[in-house]
């Protein structure tokens, strides 16, 4: 292999798995968490809407 390329690849690519791994973990962690809590928020909002509708339906004949 070309010694110049070998030297360049050795200095550059040796660190690449660690850098890419770090960025991958970071983005996965941040946006995975954001996605998870947004989904959970939508879930409880739906639940609240259903329950509030039930409460208002139950209260309707008396009003």
């Amino acid at each position: 292999m070309d010694p110049v390329l070998q030297e360049i690849y050795r200095t550059v690519l040796d660190g690449a798995p660690f850098v890419l791994g770090a960025y991958f973990l970071l983005w996965l962690g941040l946006f995975g968490y954001a996605f998870m809590i947004t989904k959970r928020l939508k879930g409880v909002e739906k639940e609240l809407a259903v329950i509030e509708e039930s409460v208002s339906r139950r209260g309707a004949p008396n009003s």
Partner: peptide, 21 residues
């Protein structure tokens, strides 16, 4: 100069973690 060839920058790629870490 690496292997007799002038190269711009001796790369320490791992330092790029700094900007998010």
């Amino acid at each position: 100069v690496i292997g007799g060839v002038p190269i711009q920058n001796q790369l320490l790629f791992s330092q790029k973690i700094f900007y998010f870490h």
